[in-house]
Design a protein around this nucleic acid. Structure first.
Lengths: 129, 129
DNA sequence: CGGGATCCCTAAAGATACTG
DNA sequence: CAGTATCTTTAGGGATCCCG
């Protein structure tokens, strides 16, 4: 994959638009539960309550809203079986699966640098006693 | 760069930890102004008011808080020149610059798929008239 | 079981004014 | 010019209840 570093971003007005797009993406996936849902669904289709247990700590309401948002953006497909009681399955679309690649890279960055960040925080907090 | 896809995330308890780490990263950089500041600083050192103009729309207070957070995490170095009036320069550290790589990849994903997402949204919104 | 509606509460962020 | 403090507004998210 050819990577154009963000280095060049925002150096010109036209480049600043890139920052805004990046902001929109982060705004979209940066909420509390979206990547948790994507991560959980990356293993295959899952039912609502199963997702809730897997993610852990998410409220009924927020999981619904999160899944609705992902469905709206074409990242998740929702399939309702009209049985009693109802059964609803969620699964990632190809678009949703494609998102896991950049996320994996970001995760790798985090794994590599979290110690460094932790240290920097301690130093900073110490210096302000 | 070897990429381990998020595909395998959350399939086991141990993997679910990865999701949490990813959540922490997104939590940290997913706020309204952090990537804007990183993007602006990616072009080189910049003074406070210069940053404010470049980013656009950010309040005095929020830019201060954003930069303080980045400094605390070791992503930004702050240099104050005790002149009158004061001059304060901000610049990315190597750690801060390293973050631009995964962000560039995420940006590429956005550029590639934003149309697809847009379309999905329109379809979804139509279907709910 | 899955989802919607309502209420409430807390963090995030904007506006403004003051200071070295 | 850069930073802090205070106040206010807003949006995100949790709890709860009801419905098919």
């Amino acid at each position: 994959m050819t990577v154009r570093p963000v280095e060049v971003i925002c150096l010109e007005d036209q480049q600043h638009e890139k920052c805004k797009l990046l902001g929109q993406i982060l705004d979209r996936i940066g909420d509390k539960w979206t990547i948790m849902a994507v991560g959980a669904l990356s293993g295959g289709p899952m039912r609502f309550n199963e997702l809730m247990r897997r993610i852990g700590g998410v409220s009924h309401r927020m999981l619904t809203l999160t899944l609705r948002g992902l469905e709206r953006d074409g990242m998740v497909r929702r399939t309702a079986y009209p049985t009693i009681p109802p059964k609803v399955e969620y699964e990632l679309t190809p678009l949703g699966r494609s998102l896991t690649e950049p996320l994996a890279i970001l995760l790798q960055w985090g794994e590599k640098h979290s110690g460094e960040i932790e240290t920097a925080r301690n130093v900073f907090d110490q210096s302000r006693n």
